[in-house]
Amino acid sequence: MQPLTDAQIRSAFVNASKREIAQATLPDLDSLKWDKLDALGWRDPKRPVLAYVIVEHEGSPVGAILRTAEPSKARRRMLCSWCQDIVTSDDAVLYVAKRAGAAGRKGNTIGTSICTEFSCSRNVRRTPTTSEVGSDDPTDREAWTARRIATLRERSTHFIAEVLDQSSLD
C-alpha cells in the first residue's frame, strides 16, 4: 500500500458524512509499515464500536467507516473472511458498513467478519506451517505466502466494491 496522508485518508471515505469524517480518529501514520499493508484498518480508541478501513480500489485509496457491536466478554470464535488465518489466535468480529451514496442513506449495509484489530496483513505474511504448504521447500512457502497476500487484497477490495455498489437501491 502507498503511504497516505491525513487528508488523503479523510477524503477516501465513501460512506460517511463530513461530520463523521472530521470526527474520525486516525492512527499514527508515521509508525505504519506501509510496504507490509494490504489494507489499512484501525479501531477508534474513543468510540469502540467504530472502525475504519482503507483499501486500494482501482488504483485509488477508498475508505469505509465500519461499525461493530459493543465489546463483549462472551464472544464467539469466528474466522476472518479476509485473511482466513487458522493458526493465529486473533479474534474476528462482524463489521458492518453503510453502503455509499443513496443506498447507504436508505439504510443499506454490508457486513463481513474481519480480524478485530485488522491484523490481516501481518497474518498472511507469517511463516506458514509445513502442513499448510505441504512442503519444506522455501520456494513453495514463498508461493503460498504470495497467494495469501493476493487473496487478502482480492477479498478486501471486493468488500469495498460492495460498499460502493449502487445496484442495491431497492
Score class of each variant (00 low, 15 high):
Pro61Tyr: 07
Pro61Met: 09
Pro61Cys: 08
Ala64Gln: 02
Ile65Cys: 00
Leu66Trp: 02
Thr68Ser: 15
Ala69Asp: 14
Glu70Val: 13
Glu70Met: 14
Glu70Ser: 13
Ser72Thr: 15
Lys73Ser: 07
Lys73His: 06
Lys73Gln: 10
Lys73Asp: 10
Ala74Leu: 15
Ala74Gly: 05
Arg75Pro: 01
Arg75Trp: 09
Arg76Ala: 12
Arg77Ala: 13
Arg77Glu: 14
Met78Glu: 15
Ser81Asp: 11
Ser81Gln: 15
Ser81Leu: 07
Cys83Met: 04
Cys83Tyr: 02
Cys83Leu: 06
Gln84Tyr: 09
Asp85Ala: 06
Ile86Asp: 11
Thr88His: 09
Thr88Ala: 13
Ser89Phe: 08
Ser89Lys: 13
Asp91Pro: 00
Asp91Leu: 11
Ala92Glu: 08
Val93Phe: 05
Val93His: 00
Val93Lys: 03
Leu94Cys: 04
Val96Pro: 00
Val96Tyr: 00
Val96Lys: 05
Lys98His: 09
Lys98Thr: 01
Lys98Ile: 00
Gly101Ile: 02
Gly101Thr: 08
Gly104Phe: 00
Arg105Ile: 02
Lys106Asp: 12
Gly107Trp: 03
Asn108Gln: 13
Asn108Lys: 14
Asn108Leu: 06
Asn108His: 10
Ile110Gln: 00
Gly111Asp: 01
Thr112Pro: 01
Thr112Ser: 14
Ser113Lys: 07
Ser113Leu: 03
Ser113Gly: 03
Cys115Thr: 05
Thr116Glu: 15
Thr116Leu: 15
Thr116Trp: 13
Glu117Lys: 03
Glu117Asn: 09
Ser119Tyr: 05
Cys120Met: 07
Ser121Arg: 04
Asn123Asp: 12
Val124Ile: 12
Val124Gln: 06
Val124Gly: 04
Arg125His: 09
Thr127Asn: 13
Pro128Lys: 09
Thr129Gly: 11
Ser131Ala: 15
Ser131Gly: 05
Val133Lys: 06
Val133Phe: 04
Gly134His: 13
Gly134Val: 08
Ser135Glu: 06
Asp136Arg: 15
Asp136Phe: 12
Asp137Ile: 06
Asp137Ser: 12
Asp137Leu: 06
Asp137Cys: 11
Pro138Ala: 10
Asp140Ala: 15
Arg141Leu: 01
Trp144Phe: 15
Thr145Leu: 11
Ala146Ile: 02
Arg147Ile: 02
Ala150Gln: 13
Ala150Thr: 12
Ala150Arg: 11
